[in-house]
């Protein structure tokens, strides 16, 4: 066996580009990890502000079981049930409005519209997403209010229905954009393969495109839910801001976020009321965390199949 001696050490050199690569890796790691640190930092801050209340004035049964949110009374009670139900009901109505609108718009833009129509619609939808929430709140307060009073013959137009519709219209553009991106990402060869088998457009959309885009569509919907829970100004203006467990869509409610926004400015820092508002914040944070976690698990579950 006579083997030519090789010099792999000459081939295997760490050159400049190798070091650049490692450096960029470290920079990306720092960038990525700092986002996580900021989020943990926010959670720590909110918890720190609310923790004293959680250990002193907080009663689990009162917080989740009572509808009496009376922070300024001489004998204050902090029942958040009505606020939680208020937020949930408004978000529920909003999703009933937003899901059909946004999915329909996304499917139309991605699968049916062509050329100019498509481009114009995309720009318009993105413009809608840029409308500030206070403008939506203003529409709810002035236009939707009178509209609901007139059409349904009810005394107050600032209620679950109003806030839900406003919130649904607000969330729809961004949901449309994300859902459309998900549909657009489905490769054309899937469409061509299905068309070649004689599938109709609706059959292709329903049985090929939507399953392929499922992850993106689910995340579009969950982003909408997250938006619903987190939106403050429009809900504050359109919901009536009355503590109440709604029994019909025409009842006024008050949302968690709106409560924090409306009351935090009037409380003394460190007071029991201040702590109670931060407890609401912790609760909101946990809810959004659970929604995101659920989204992640759903998407993972789909991927496994």
């Amino acid at each position: 066996m006579s083997e030519k001696t090789l010099a792999p050490s000459q081939l295997d050199q760490r050159d400049a580009s190798w070091y650049v690569d490692k450096l960029v890796q470290i920079l990306m790691f720092v960038g990525g990890i700092s986002a996580i640190i900021f989020i943990i930092g926010i959670f720590v801050f909110i918890t720190k502000e609310g923790i004293a209340f959680l250990f002193e004035g907080f009663s689990f049964t009162e917080f989740f079981g009572s509808i009496n949110w009376r922070p300024t009374s001489s004998n204050p009670t902090y029942g958040a049930l009505a606020l939680i139900v208020g937020t949930a009901s408004v978000t529920g109505v909003a999703m009933l409005v937003a899901i059909p609108f946004s999915l329909g718009a996304a499917i139309y833009i991605s699968e049916f519209a062509t050329g100019r129509t498509k481009e114009t619609l995309k720009v318009l939808v993105e413009l809608l997403a840029a409308i500030p929430s206070v403008v939506w709140g203003f529409i709810g307060l002035s236009i939707m209010n009178e509209f609901i009073i007139e059409v349904f013959d009810v005394p107050i137009g600032l209620n679950v229905l109003n806030a839900g519709i406003i919130l649904g219209l607000m969330a729809a553009p961004i949901m449309t954009t994300i859902a459309e991106d998900a549909l657009k990402a489905v490769p054309d060869r899937f469409r061509e393969a299905a068309e070649a088998m004689g599938a109709t457009r609706w059959q292709i959309i329903r049985q090929v495109i939507m399953p392929a885009a499922k992850n993106g569509l689910v995340s579009a919907v969950l982003l909408g839910v997250g938006r619903g829970f987190g939106e403050t100004m429009a809900v504050l203006m359109a919901s009536g801001h009355a503590i109440n467990i709604p029994t019909s869509p025409f009842d006024s409610v008050r949302a968690l976020t709106a409560t924090i926004a409306a009351e935090l400015g009037e409380t003394a820092q460190g007071s029991e009321h201040y702590g109670a508002l931060f407890a609401l914040g912790i609760f909101l944070f946990i809810i959004t965390f659970i929604i995101n976690l659920a989204a992640d698990l759903v998407v993972r579950g789909i991927r496994k199949k």
Binding site: P8, D12, R14, D15, S17, W18, D21
Partner: peptide
């Protein structure tokens, strides 16, 4: 002549 897993520079 060198184990691929021992290459110090994968890219090379």
């Amino acid at each position: 002549g060198t184990e691929v897993s021992a290459w110090r520079n994968d890219y090379a």
